[in-house]
Lab assay of single mutants.
Amino acid sequence: NQASVVANQLIPINTALTLVMMRSEVVTPVGIPADDIPRLVSMQVNRAVPLGTTLMPDMVKGYP
């Protein structure tokens, strides 16, 4: 099973992602692959992302 990117904390709308905000976890449904975490750094979320939420491609501005 492939690990996905999961919010490690509440991420407010328009926040630029940092490594501490994300963790990898095997979840269903599958979200953004954990391998993409380095690419996500400094990209902004377009909505508030609660703790434990799987990051989906449509939540991150400019992804992929």
Rank of each mutant, 00 (worst) to 15 (best):
P29F: 04
M56P: 00
V5T: 08
I13L: 11
P33M: 07
G62I: 05
D36N: 15
P12L: 10
G62M: 11
N46V: 12
A48F: 13
P29N: 04
Q44M: 12
D58Q: 09
V41W: 03
Q44V: 10
A16M: 11
G31S: 02
V41E: 08
L40I: 13
Q9W: 07
M43W: 12
V49T: 04
A16L: 14
T53G: 13
A34H: 07
D35M: 11
A34S: 09
T18H: 06
M21P: 02
Q2R: 11
A16H: 15
A3G: 09
N8H: 14
N46E: 08
P38N: 10
M22V: 07
D35C: 05
G62H: 14
L51P: 07
M56Q: 10
N14L: 08
A16R: 11
P29E: 06
L40W: 02
N14E: 08
V41S: 03
A3Q: 10
P12Q: 08
T15N: 04
P50Y: 15
Y63M: 06
I37F: 03
N1Y: 12
V41H: 04
V6N: 00
P57V: 08
A34C: 04
N14C: 04
Q9H: 12
V60H: 01
N8K: 10
R39D: 13
P12N: 09
A7Y: 02
Q44P: 06
V49H: 02
P12I: 05
P29Y: 03
R39K: 12
P33S: 11
Q9C: 04
N46R: 09
V26N: 11
L19F: 11
S4A: 03
E25R: 10
P38S: 11
E25T: 09
S4K: 00
S42M: 15
N8P: 01
G31Y: 02
V5Q: 00
P12D: 11
R39C: 05
S4F: 03
V45S: 05
Y63G: 04
L51F: 13
S4M: 02
P33V: 08
T54M: 03
L10Q: 15
V27C: 04
M59C: 04
T28G: 06
D58H: 12
P29L: 04
V26R: 08
E25L: 06
Q44W: 14
Y63W: 14
G52Y: 04
P50V: 07
A16Y: 13
S42E: 13
V45N: 01
N14T: 04
T15L: 04
